[in-house]
Simulated assay, not measured.
Amino acid sequence: MACMDDARARVREFFTPRAADWDSRFPDDGPAYRAGVAALGLRAGDRVLDAGCGTGRALPALRDAVGPGGTVLGADLTPAMLTAAVAAGRQVYGRLLLADVARLPVRSAVLDAVFAAGLISHMAAPEENLRELARTVRPGGRLALFHPIGRAALAARQGRQITPDDARAEQNIGPLLAGSGWRMTSYTDEDARYLVLATRA
Rank of each mutant, 00 (worst) to 15 (best):
A2S: 14
M4A: 10
M4Q: 07
R8Q: 13
A9G: 11
A9R: 15
V11P: 03
F14I: 10
T16F: 12
R18T: 11
A20K: 13
D21F: 03
D23N: 11
R25C: 11
D28T: 15
D29Y: 10
R34F: 05
A39T: 11
L40D: 02
A44E: 15
A44C: 10
D46S: 14
L49H: 02
L49T: 00
L49D: 04
A51T: 01
G54N: 04
T55Q: 02
R57V: 15
A58P: 10
A58Q: 06
L62N: 08
A65G: 10
G69A: 12
G69E: 11
G70K: 03
T71V: 14
T71P: 02
V72R: 02
A75C: 07
A80K: 01
A85P: 05
A88K: 11
G89A: 08
G89I: 03
R90P: 00
G94M: 04
R95F: 10
L98I: 12
A99P: 03
A102C: 13
R103S: 14
V106R: 00
R107Y: 08
A109Y: 03
V110R: 08
V110Y: 00
A113Q: 09
A113R: 03
A113W: 05
G118S: 04
G118C: 05
I120R: 00
I120H: 01
H122F: 13
M123V: 08
P126W: 07
P126G: 08
P126D: 09
E127P: 05
A134H: 03
T136W: 00
V137D: 00
G141F: 00
L143E: 00
A144N: 10
A144L: 13
F146G: 03
I149Y: 11
I149A: 08
R151W: 07
R151P: 09
A152T: 14
L154K: 07
L154C: 06
A155Q: 07
R157N: 05
Q158W: 13
R160A: 14
I162C: 13
T163W: 13
D166Q: 09
A167V: 05
A167P: 04
R168M: 09
A169V: 06
N172A: 11
I173M: 04
I173V: 15
P175K: 13
A178Q: 05
W182C: 04
M184D: 03
T185A: 05
T188S: 13
D189E: 08
E190K: 11
Y194W: 06
Y194T: 01
Y194Q: 02
L195S: 00
V196R: 00
A198D: 04
T199F: 04
T199C: 09
R200H: 04
